[in-house]
Amino acid sequence: MIKYYNRKSKKYEIEQVAGDTYLNWIYSSPIGMRFLELLIKKKIFSKLYGHFCDKKSSKKKISSFVKDFNIDLSCCEKKINDFECFNDFFTRKLIPASRPINTDINSVVSPGDGKLLAYKNINLNNVFNIKGYSYSLSDLINNNEVASTFEGGSCIILRLCPTDYHRFHFVDDGICSTTTKIKGDYYSVNPIALKKIPDLFFRNKREWCIFHSKHFGELLHVEVGATCVGSILQTYTPDKNIKKGSEKGFFKFGGSTTILFFKRNSIVIDQDLIEQTNNGYETQILMGEKIGKKF
């Protein structure tokens, strides 16, 4: 059972987990864990499943998925019968009015839909403390020079469930560098998996780049892949002017994670997000929603 905070209703709710029976078996049983290490975490498994989700025959999964998880399609650009395959539905674009962007130049907005954790005054050598082991930002991006510039800054971790809108966006006007890709495994990023494989962010496939934000300085974008994520696709053009809320890219099928690091004294994360994180809860957030302000 995964409890999260609904910022809109100001209530705690229970997450509907796609494939929860499967996840619990894989990450809780000896046989499931062996199957995980032998096959499921491998690129080939996610690639094959991604290939299936690109086929027209996968279209028949859409209706039951929408019904089972009560997905609102009224905000989509396409009607349910217009999707060509499951991945076409999964990477669906939304009507701009359904995700209004907070246009205040001093406001930091969420890069996507999902469940958010927020941290301030981060220690680069202890960005994640997992079962007594410390993992640094350098471990995450494999670059000591870049990592060192974010000491004492802020961090948000946005977990995208399979039921979420799976495109991610820029939080401000600016210019973005090219993307660096790091090969890795394909563990699930669901909290069920995190309990068993707590350092999976440092094992999974990931991509990162530097965004030169107009109002908040340099920030670090990191995208982390997961089980059945056939691809992380970057759709932005490097070294070109970007508008706040513009699409950066999208994940194909599967739960995934976007992580942002901000430099010291650049932003102040909204206090309710910090408080919920300190209390052990993720907060449900929509793309374009204010999550902080300029320092």
Rank of each mutant, 00 (worst) to 15 (best):
L73H: 05
L116T: 02
K93T: 09
T91I: 14
P100N: 05
I71T: 01
F90M: 10
T91M: 13
L117C: 10
S107N: 12
T91A: 13
T91G: 09
S110Y: 01
L117D: 11
K79A: 13
C76L: 09
D113V: 02
S107K: 09
S98F: 10
L116E: 09
K115N: 11
G112P: 01
K93Q: 14
S74T: 14
V108A: 07
D113N: 05
D104P: 00
C85P: 08
N81D: 15
S98I: 04
D88K: 04
I71R: 00
P100D: 02
P96F: 08
D82G: 09
S110K: 00
P100V: 04
E84Y: 05
N70K: 13
R92L: 03
P111K: 00
L94R: 03
N87Q: 11
C76T: 12
P111I: 00
S110G: 00
K79L: 15
I80A: 12
D113L: 02
D88Y: 03
F90W: 07
D113F: 07
A118D: 03
D72W: 07
T103I: 15
S107H: 07
E84G: 03
F90P: 06
L73T: 13
D113G: 03
G112I: 01
N106I: 01
D82F: 02
L117R: 13
N87G: 08
K115E: 13
V108H: 03
V109S: 05
I71W: 05
N70W: 08
N70E: 15
P96W: 10
E77D: 10
A97T: 13
N70Y: 12
I101M: 06
F69K: 00
L94G: 00
P111A: 01
T103Q: 15
T103C: 15
D72S: 05
R92E: 05
L117A: 10
D88A: 04
L73E: 14
S74I: 06
D82W: 01
D88N: 06
I101E: 08
F89T: 08
L94P: 00
T103F: 15
D113S: 03
I95A: 11
F89W: 13
N102P: 03
K79S: 12
F90L: 11
F86E: 09
V109L: 08
L73F: 03
S98C: 13
R99G: 04
D113M: 08
F83W: 04
I105A: 13
K79E: 15
N81W: 01
E84M: 10
C75Q: 12
C76K: 04
C85R: 08
K79C: 10
N70M: 12
R92M: 02
N102W: 05
G114M: 09
P96T: 00
K115F: 14
S110V: 01
S110L: 03
C75D: 14
D82R: 02
V108L: 13
C75A: 11
I95F: 10
R92H: 07
C85F: 12
T103W: 15
I80Q: 15
E77Y: 10
R99I: 05
F69M: 04
